[in-house]
Simulated scan of single mutants.
Amino acid sequence: MDVSKIIIPGDTPGIEWRLPVLRFMGHDPKAPKTYIQAALHAGELPGTVLLHFLCERLRQAENQGGIAGDITIVPHANPIGAAQSHFGELQGRFDLGSRTNFNRDFPLISIADRATLVEDLNDYPATDRLKRQLLHMALGADLVIDLHCDDESLQYAYIDEAFWPEAADLAAALDMEAVLLSDGESSAFEEAVGFAWKYEIPGERQSRPPGKLSVTVELRGKRDVDPVLAKKDAEGLWRFLATRGIVNDGRPLATAFSGPAVPLDNVEIVRAPEGGAVLFHCNIGERIMQGDLLATIVTRPGQPGGSIDLTAPQDGLILTRRSDRLVRRRGDLMKIACSSPSKASRRAGALEN
Rank of each mutant, 00 (worst) to 15 (best):
M1N: 06
G10T: 15
T12W: 08
T12E: 09
P13D: 14
P13K: 14
P13R: 13
G14M: 06
A31P: 07
K33C: 03
T34C: 09
Y35G: 00
Q37L: 02
A38P: 01
A39K: 01
L45I: 05
T48H: 05
L54A: 06
Q60E: 14
N63K: 14
G69C: 06
I71C: 01
I73Y: 00
P75K: 01
A82P: 00
S85F: 12
E89S: 10
L90M: 11
L90N: 10
Q91K: 15
G92E: 02
G92M: 07
N101E: 03
N103F: 02
R104M: 06
S110P: 07
D113L: 07
R114N: 00
A115Y: 04
A115M: 04
V118Y: 02
A126E: 02
Q133D: 01
L135D: 10
C149M: 15
S153H: 11
Q155E: 11
Y158D: 02
D160N: 13
A168E: 09
A173E: 12
S182M: 02
G184C: 08
E185D: 11
A188W: 13
K198H: 06
Y199K: 09
E200T: 14
P202K: 06
G203D: 03
E204I: 06
Q206P: 04
Q206G: 09
G211M: 07
K212G: 04
V217R: 02
E218Q: 15
G221C: 08
R223Y: 13
D226M: 13
P227M: 14
P227N: 12
P227I: 14
V228T: 11
L229A: 11
K231G: 06
A242V: 08
R244K: 12
N248L: 12
A254R: 09
T255C: 10
P260Y: 03
P263N: 11
P263R: 08
V267P: 07
R271E: 02
G276I: 00
F280T: 06
H281W: 13
C282Y: 03
I284Y: 03
L294Q: 10
P301S: 04
P304A: 11
S307Q: 12
L310A: 08
Q314A: 15
T320K: 10
T320R: 07
S323V: 11
R325G: 01
G331P: 00
C338T: 11
C338N: 08
S339K: 12
S342V: 06
K343R: 15
